[in-house]
Design a protein around this nucleic acid. Structure first.
Lengths: 211, 211
DNA sequence: GCAAAGTCTTACACCTTGTCAAAGTTGGGT
DNA sequence: ACCCAACTTTGACAAGGTGTAAGACTTTGC
């Protein structure tokens, strides 16, 4: 799935199987659709294709012209948000910080973005897409894994947990914290704090690090 | 929502607003429906009311005669499974164990039951039921909170985390572990193990306890 | 045995996802 | 400036899901 990679400076020209140059028109529609979908699904995960199309100023059929099914639209939305998060994390230069500090920083950045799209937490990926859904998070979990590994090597973190698991667990804790806030059982500040100390404990970091 | 409480020895007779004694017939249908729903939704969360009715040997309209909407059926299913878990936890006598040990025991028991209904993890509670969904888990999270509090008082666990948060986080980690197994990224044994040590760390338990 | 409670059949309204075809419109290369 | 291909729109349709409703039928419990 080669998605909206419009910024990359053309790595190798022959690696994309079917470049299928799109008309400017079409490209405009595509991004209008994804824009609208991000906005709508970010609030209401059950928004219909009709609603998305309307919000994009386009017909439902046009949506289907670009995305074969509703779930493909969802995928595009995830891609978009993931890319956004990824860029923000790039800008945060996590690799230049101590592992624990980088971890906390990653939490902050991700938290903020996830907060912008509350609906996406509960977007119902159709039955089959379960595995792909996990794949969607990979750019972020990969970073987490890297930080975990680095911290384990440096002795900041306990060495007996698989980085993969730590990454998954971290995401889960982030969701849980978000849910607590959404349910009104915790203030955003308290949740963010609990998440930070919770994650550090999970990784077996000896003392608290500062953000 | 006074649900299938058929075993309680009639606390106070007047607290149920409308006892509405049901015919044996109806009661049979109700449980057939919930049975079927647990079975179907436990595998395929998107199972239709039609399918549930068929599996229960009943018409779709009969389902609607007992449950006003699909989501009410889902609620009944959750109630049923929660009750099952609750009973199993009762039998485990968690309160008579050290907090850490009790915690691990609770994980084991819950894990096993959650494993029986893989579909329920992803059952899509319609938008409004979000809060109720959390309420659904309350019998279990309450236990977790109790154990957390007890462990904090006894000095087994760190004292700086709110029990409520610990409970939510524990459930989240459990789900994450389940998801890793479902996605084939971890073996059940490895996941269970990671979950155990992860949760102990989260609670700030100094050393590992045994199951 | 009889009335009420429960169920079944049939039918409808409405919404959503997908698909299709034909008529318009826009874009880009020549 | 033109023209063709790409794109969008309009309109229509099938399939399937959730709910609702009314009337006939069957079972239960007294």
């Amino acid at each position: 799935m080669p998605s909206q990679g419009s910024r990359e400076p053309a790595g190798s020209a022959a690696d994309r199987p079917a470049p299928r140059r799109r008309r400017a028109d079409a490209e405009r529609s595509r991004s209008a659709i994804v824009d609208a979908a991000v906005r709508l699904l970010g609030e209401r995960p059950e928004a219909s294709v009709e609603a998305i199309a309307a919000a994009a100023g386009v017909t439902r059929q046009t949506v289907y012209a670009h995305y074969p099914s509703r779930s493909e639209v969802l995928t595009a939305v995830f891609d978009r948000v993931t890319a956004e998060t990824d860029a923000a994390l790039d800008a945060a230069r996590l690799d230049e910080l101590p592992a624990a500090t980088g971890l906390l920083r990653l939490l902050d950045v991700s938290w903020e973005i996830a907060d912008r799209y509350p609906g996406l937490r509960h977007a119902d990926p159709p039955p089959a897409d379960r595995k792909e859904e996990a794949e969607q998070h990979r750019p972020i979990t990969e970073r987490l894994e890297r930080i975990a590994r680095r911290g384990q090597e440096s002795g900041e973190f306990a060495r007996d947990a698989e980085p993969r698991w730590l990454a998954a667990a971290t995401v889960a804790l982030g969701h849980a914290a978000g849910a607590e806030v959404a349910a009104g059982r915790m203030t955003p500040a308290a949740a963010a704090d609990a998440l930070r100390t919770g994650v550090l404990r999970l990784y077996g970091a000896e003392a608290d690090a500062e953000v």
